[in-house]
Design a protein around this nucleic acid. Structure first.
Length: 245
DNA sequence: CACCAGGCCGTGC
DNA sequence: GCACGGCATGGT
């Protein structure tokens, strides 16, 4: 379980809960339970979700060659991947993420599931669809302690249809549309495009990545991380948290 | 008491 | 265009 903990609970997805002997998540109207990487290869949905088709061996080799920090990152997190998540779930997840920490984001994610999702299995709730979440209100969201993000969630529910058709757009155009949702800026849209649309050209810059860039890459352009900007970003994010930068 | 967390908004220049 | 304070909440 140690090798997939960072992928499932390290900040790109908030769907997974660590139990005594497995990680569990309600996705695709089912409860999935996994203990190791191999469990992702036994099911069609999980295979897609785990980004089975991407050549991570090749990417890791190339990223390792870039510099010492990325080499350490690849060696510390050998299994790191970019999961293929649902756009709507990533939209709400990363609205919740702003000025927040991973543990509390997960708590709020679970609260939305329990309150507005449906029970797929005893005590396992799905993430609410836009229609389900539309049953909420500013006041109910306040009670769940989402804080100042309440009005952002309300606006996202109203504009959920923006998510349809982003696949065919350029990065800049897709980003522009996402940013018409109140509470969605450059960083949150980068996370949505990366984790929800598998846009591997995305490069979300959060507080951790800012520290890394300032300290280790002060005079480098983002293009330094080509041809795997998103993966490098993910490695550096995990590494920065690991060494408590 | 302070400062921080996978930031963004509103205001002022 | 850029800088800066404010923002809900919970943890350290």
């Amino acid at each position: 379980m140690d090798d997939i903990r960072e992928i499932l609970t390290g900040g790109q997805s908030f769907s997974w809960s660590e139990e005594e002997d497995c990680f569990s998540a309600v996705l695709n109207e089912k409860v999935y339970r996994v203990q190791s990487e191999s469990d992702f290869y036994s099911d069609d949905f999980l295979r897609m979700y785990y980004d089975f088709d991407f050549d991570y061996d090749r990417a890791r080799c190339e990223i390792r060659e870039k510099d010492e920090l990325l080499k350490q990152a690849v060696d510390n997190f050998p299994k790191l991947r970019i999961l293929r998540q649902d756009p709507w779930i990533t939209l709400i997840s990363f609205i919740l993420s702003q000025n927040n920490n991973i543990k509390r984001i997960k708590g709020l994610y679970d609260a939305l599931c329990r309150n507005y999702g449906h029970e797929v299995e005893k005590n396992y709730y799905s993430f609410p669809t836009p229609k389900e979440l539309a049953r909420t209100s500013i006041n109910e969201l306040k009670e769940l302690k989402v804080g100042f993000r309440d009005r952002y969630i309300m606006d996202a529910i109203e504009k959920a249809d923006i998510l349809n058709g982003l696949e065919s757009l350029s990065y800049d155009e897709a980003e522009k549309r996402l940013m018409t949702i109140t509470g969605v800026g450059k960083k949150v849209s980068a996370c949505i495009l990366l984790f929800g649309y598998h846009r591997m050209d995305a490069f979300p810059i959060d507080v951790w990545i800012k520290k890394v860039l300032n300290q280790y890459y002060p005079n480098k352009d983002i293009s330094y991380f080509n041809p795997y900007p998103a993966l490098c970003q993910q490695y550096l994010f995990s590494m920065a948290r690991f060494i408590k930068l």
